[in-house]
Nucleic acid binder design. Structure first.
Ligand SMILES: [Mn+2]
Ligand SMILES: [Mn+2]
Ligand SMILES: [Zn+2]
Ligand SMILES: [Zn+2]
Lengths: 134, 134
DNA sequence: TCAATAATAGTAATCATTCTTGTTTCTGTT
DNA sequence: AACAGAAACAAGAATGATTACTATTATTGA
């Protein structure tokens, strides 16, 4: 039996904040973003609802950058670039892993693959420009 | 001028522990592994030396699983599978991203790519077997 | 309206990692 | 071997992100 889920204005706002940006925000970013409109919002509420969204598959985690987890409201398979200078996480359209590869690896190693992701690491264009004028 | 690096028996042991396993250990794992032979080893020393190795490029980080960073003494480009059940990190030989793709993406988005990695998520063979007899 | 239950704010607790400080170990030189 | 300066260390405190707890408030369906 599934648990009943009541409506909550704050939950909706948290989801929309994550879905409405491409910056792959942290929980803290969402909290600061919504604080003006919801002055009594609690950081724990942001974390609790994010955990639910992740669990439902409504959002995904892009991993941890500088000790903070980054989330993504875009659940279509796509690729990410992480700037090791400023921590920006940038979308790279396209899926670099073929479905065939997934199936072959799963069979060869006797494991079940649920998802695959590609990550590029480097320096983003902003940070490159800022480093130039030496 | 580069900083002089003195020899340290513990540093060597920490590096060998990481290079001598394919389990992609945590700092805590390394600490527990070496504790019997080095009873006065400090967890801080493990972290400090790991940070150095990472900085030198002697080892790499495979990312964070269940809140703990995982390290890899194999710095050849290869692929990883992360079990979402038990947290195991397993090597998958092979590099799925062509060098050409790196160059093309770097040019198109005006950024510098230093490395690329592929990550599979799913259930490992051990956990699959344990789940079967229901 | 009203009782049952879900969600929240505020705060305390947890846990991985980093920092600080006083001590010990290395290393090159007498 | 003894010495001095630099590097590494142990132990424990501090930090910071995340989670857990609890008393209160909001939502829901009858
Ligand atoms: Mn994205
Ligand atoms: Mn590996
Ligand atoms: Zn950047
Ligand atoms: Zn497993």
């Amino acid at each position: 039996m599934e648990k009943k889920q009541n409506y909550s204005r704050k939950r909706e706002a948290i989801l929309k904040a994550i879905q409405g940006t491409t910056c792959h925000p942290t929980a803290e970013w969402v909290y600061q973003k919504l604080k003006p409109e919801y002055p009594d919002l609690s950081l724990g509420t942001v974390y609790r609802n994010i955990a639910q969204f992740k669990n439902d598959g409504t959002i995904i985690s892009v991993g941890t950058v500088n000790g903070q987890e980054r989330y993504d409201g875009n659940i279509q398979p796509h690729t990410h670039f992480v700037c090791s200078c400023c921590g920006a996480v940038i979308d790279i359209p396209g899926n670099f892993i073929s479905l065939d590869a997934n199936v072959e690896i799963a069979e060869r190693y006797h494991l079940r693959i649920d998802s695959s992701e590609v990550l590029f690491h480097g320096i983003c264009s902003n940070c490159l420009q800022r480093q130039k004028p030496l």
